[in-house]
């Protein structure tokens, strides 16, 4: 996959050249490229002077970072306590069945990545589904959630 090295540099440019910026830079990669590309980690290593091994370690440790491209949209099913008690597990199964993927997987057409996430702090909507970190849906009637998901192209 071709990654624009200029975009990588643009992102790195935004931050101080210290190890402290590492996580933020990798998160910006994630937002821009929908994953953290190897080329990006190599470049960060050169610019920040942090060994690649450490950068890769950070890349594999944090859940917000993915080393493989994720879908155009992310569908996050909250599995916080309130959501668990109100059937988040079932909701995940139902959405997974609709999209044809397991949690963590990306649909073949690259439209959706399905994830289960820790509490998103919207317990009043439990079980809650969050799309693209912006749109929240109350999941008590799964069929309504599926209807909403179909809006995302």
């Amino acid at each position: 996959m071709g990654i624009d090295i200029r975009k990588i540099d643009e992102i790195i440019e935004r931050y101080d050249k210290s190890e402290e910026s590492l996580l933020a830079i990798l998160q910006d990669f994630q937002h821009t490229f929908r994953y953290v590309p190897e080329e990006g980690m190599k470049r960060v290593s050169e610019v920040l002077g942090v060994p690649e091994s450490k950068i890769y370690g950070v890349g594999t440790f944090y859940k917000a970072l993915s080393l493989k491209p994720v879908g155009r949209h992310t569908c996050k099913v909250c599995t916080g306590t309130a959501c668990h008690l109100k059937g988040a597990h079932t909701l995940t199964d139902i959405i997974g069945k609709e999209l044809g993927v397991e949690p963590g997987g990306t649909t073949k057409d690259g439209r959706f990545t399905l994830q289960t996430v820790n509490c998103v702090g919207a317990c009043a909507l439990a079980p809650v589904v969050m799309v693209d970190d912006e749109d929240y849906y109350e999941g008590s009637s799964p069929q309504d959630v599926l209807k909403n998901l179909r809006k995302y192209k």
Partner: peptide, 10 residues
């Protein structure tokens, strides 16, 4: 002093 390896994942 080379840091060729690190702990990965969690």
């Amino acid at each position: 002093g080379v840091s060729a390896i690190s702990m990965l994942d969690r």
